[in-house]
Design a protein around this nucleic acid. Sequence first.
DNA 1: CGACCAATTTGGTCAGACCAAATATAGGGC
DNA 2: GCCCTATATTTGGTCTGACCAAATTGGTCG
Lengths: 241, 241
Amino acid sequence: MTVITTLSHEIADVLRDEILRQQYRSGDRFPSERDLAGRFNASRGAVREALSQLEQLGLIRVQPGGARVQSVDSASIAILGPLLELDAVPDPLLVDQFLQTFGVMVALTAKNAVNAASPEQLIQLKKMVVALVGDSTDFESMQPQWRELLETMSAIENNLVLRLISNDLKAQFVDRMMTLGIRPELKKNSIKQLLGTLRVSLNNRDGELAAAAMLEHFEELREAVRDAITERTEIIQRKAV
Amino acid sequence: MTVITTLSHEIADVLRDEILRQQYRSGDRFPSERDLAGRFNASRGAVREALSQLEQLGLIRVQPGGARVQSVDSASIAILGPLLELDAVPDPLLVDQFLQTFGVMVALTAKNAVNAASPEQLIQLKKMVVALVGDSTDFESMQPQWRELLETMSAIENNLVLRLISNDLKAQFVDRMMTLGIRPELKKNSIKQLLGTLRVSLNNRDGELAAAAMLEHFEELREAVRDAITERTEIIQRKAV
DNA sequence: CGACCAATTTGGTCAGACCAAATATAGGGC
DNA sequence: GCCCTATATTTGGTCTGACCAAATTGGTCG
């Protein structure tokens, strides 16, 4: 991961977080470019590039006469990642909403993939599931293969809309959760059951069944993540004392 | 709709479309800022602002030494709208993929809304559905109220992730379809059935039922839109002759 | 109190300049 | 002839200062 550290990006990051922290109300005038340039000790050009990014994120609307802050509701989903990192512990509600949403997308992906796969692809998928069964020691260690399975399914179903959204969400949440040290603990049984059901769905080319299995899995994942975040919050609070 | 027509936005639009039209391969070097400035008869500042937008869209990655074109797969979903408008008639496959994806999101919205609604909100939703039943002359004329119903549901369920994605998709597709003159014709019967099922789901607070009704509706919508696009294509081809 | 007009502010763009990092090129060693 | 290194060039990142047009602001007048 190449971390770009240009001045304009830094300015954009700071301003983005300020907006996400509700330091401006929707509709408010945004500080002028010249003021911001003064505040960040930067040139107007650098500030303008930063504002250009914020505009693309849907956080501000810039017009001659002045820029204005927009409602977070009309922003791009690219703000979800930054929204998670606003505090030391991610907002559990937001994470839960993400998992629920991501769950239905993965379910749809699985359904389409199973239904659309060629015989060879079906075999390939089966192999991957079987490999996962053999190596299902715990949730974390199977992550790479699990991701590969989802990748493959995504490639098979070939729905660009779904792929873009899923990629975006994944990039913004999954990686961050790992970074933040949120590691959900799933029961071995439920993983086994998920993989078993997936295998059956592949054998019978039953997309609906695969989708149902995924939905069920994400329901359990939601609970596990909720617990993991709660625990993490307690740890941090204890440290604070 | 305020159409912003600044030079930097125009440049960004042109370059975006060029990338979406695959005029550069993924990984290719992008023309230098100075070259682009010359080509568009603009200053480097204006070009840099445009590139800043493309970068936010995930279409290019700019680094000292040169900018490079990225895979469309890793782009933001904000490119879906422009992707639709590349040709006179939108890509039917893309539209179909959108409708399927949007369908599951609306279904989830409906499910959550019905399950989470307060008694008053439930009544409010019921009223809206009833009003729709009374006015269900055709799909197009009921659009405003239909949208309002979805808006209300979205507000009730209060899932930011889902809302942001839905808003984004809606803004990029629905409005464009209207502009492009794609008007699907749904059977009156199926609309009646949808509304009827919704009513039942509201009466029994049955989120799953509401979701199922929405899914079914979008399946039919997909077919209708497919037909509408086919027809539109034929009209245009006839004109070309 | 409201409508109108001037002064100021604000964004949009340009030109020219400098630096540091990345790339391309030429040269020397094997 | 091939590979590696040192140099030259290109490229992005930023700054300064300037000008224009549109929007906002504030004051004035009816």
